[in-house]
């Protein structure tokens, strides 16, 4: 399929932020087929570099098959424009979590279980998310949980 030509291709990663890209769900989705030039792995590879030949040559690592935060923010805009604000918000939280190692993601999940954490422990997690990972949306979610857990008496005692 012909690529739309009204967008400057991203030659230097990080120069164009997702919010600056002109996106229209009807025209540009699915991105892999319609706007592949917008897609990069977190390791900086283009999606069309993830070929069978590259895999067999050992040039593709599991880290190359991950989604980049910029991509999640593009998909968030598609969700938003499709009338799905909650889905968009989830994608934006996810964009923040791409920076966290798997074990930390799992451990925060376990900390959010009922009676698993004190209020201070949840506050500390929120602070870490914010300061170490700039994960402000996830931090807000954890703080909100801490408040509700306190009111509903499901903090660790």
């Amino acid at each position: 399929m012909q690529r739309p030509c009204n967008v400057t291709p991203l030659t230097v990663p990080g120069v164009t932020t997702p919010s600056q890209v002109d996106l229209d769900p009807g025209r540009d989705y699915p991105l892999a087929a319609r706007r592949p030039e917008l897609l990069k792995t977190p390791t900086g590879k283009r999606i069309d570099e993830l070929t069978m030949e590259a895999v067999l040559a050992g040039e593709v690592a599991p880290e190359d098959l991950r989604i980049a935060p910029e991509t999640l923010r593009l998909q968030a805009r598609i969700a938003e424009q499709s009338g799905r604000p909650q889905l968009a918000q989830n994608f934006r939280r996810a964009a923040e979590l791409t920076a966290l190692p798997d074990e930390l993601v799992l451990s925060i999940y376990n900390s959010l279980r009922p009676r698993a954490s004190t209020k201070q422990q949840l506050t500390d997690i929120a602070d870490e998310l914010e300061s170490a990972y700039s994960a402000t949306l996830c931090a807000a979610l954890v703080r909100e949980a801490a408040d509700v857990y306190e009111r509903r008496n499901i903090l660790a005692s």
Binding site: T98, C138, V148
Partner: peptide, 15 residues
């Protein structure tokens, strides 16, 4: 809780 599950949802999307 709804919050632990919402976090898990974002964890999946983040991968």
């Amino acid at each position: 809780t709804p919050w632990s599950k919402a976090f898990l949802a974002s964890a999946y999307a983040s991968r």
